[in-house]
Design a protein around this nucleic acid. Sequence first.
DNA 1: CGGCATCCCCGATGATACTG
DNA 2: CAGTATCATCGGGGATGCCG
Lengths: 130, 130
Amino acid sequence: MKNPESSPAASIPDVFDPTCSSRHALELIAGKWPMLIISALENGPMRNAALMRRLGDISQKMLTQTLKELERNGLVIREDMRTVPPHVEYSLSPVGRSLSETLLVLDRWAETHFGALDAARERYDTERRK
Amino acid sequence: MKNPESSPAASIPDVFDPTCSSRHALELIAGKWPMLIISALENGPMRNAALMRRLGDISQKMLTQTLKELERNGLVIREDMRTVPPHVEYSLSPVGRSLSETLLVLDRWAETHFGALDAARERYDTERRK
DNA sequence: CGGCATCCCCGATGATACTG
DNA sequence: CAGTATCATCGGGGATGCCG
């Protein structure tokens, strides 16, 4: 019911098992935009244009495409108000919200340690002149 | 010193600011392998071959390449025992370890909810026969 | 306003073979 | 054993223009 492929005894969900769809779950959010989009929806529903502004440099195409993929996997809910002009709102599903909590921790990690990464990178590049 | 580009008053680190290098930090781990590799190193140093087995379906090239990038950014430490035959060990730096803790939560999220994702995806695909 | 359709490019990823 | 080199590919991702 959960891990049909892996070895007989071990049907324990394992992200390290390439045949386990938990791996798929991870790859779903491993792209350039999914994590940011989910985080952006943390504070309630947002419209297309608002997301565009929030993310700063995402293209309309990638936004729509990523949102659709997230919706497909049940992380994001798309609500079309069916008005004219169009009004569409995106929000997090319960599962999506559970993910966003972890991702916010990740965001804070990035905002906390990026300086260290920058420094390390510069050091590395300086030593091996390349 | 931290956010040279963004707007005057707001030099607060913000992953949503495309000019802030915290964004870079996030993209460093946003690929297909970085998150898995960091998690794999959680339990102590590992050798090349061991990582290959652990990750299951990564190519030698991508492993080396990703490890190098992680080392460059100070998340992973590479120790070459300089023996023959070669013996090289990879481990997490302190910063890397701080990241791995968050990633483990993410892994557990994936292992917990992938069933819901699978179900949602199937539902979605069934409804809109495409 | 949202968002599809199209065209296109380049980098990420992989398969294979070779080397210290 | 660890890693490099090379070649091939595939899709992420952007630009543009059209539509309900």
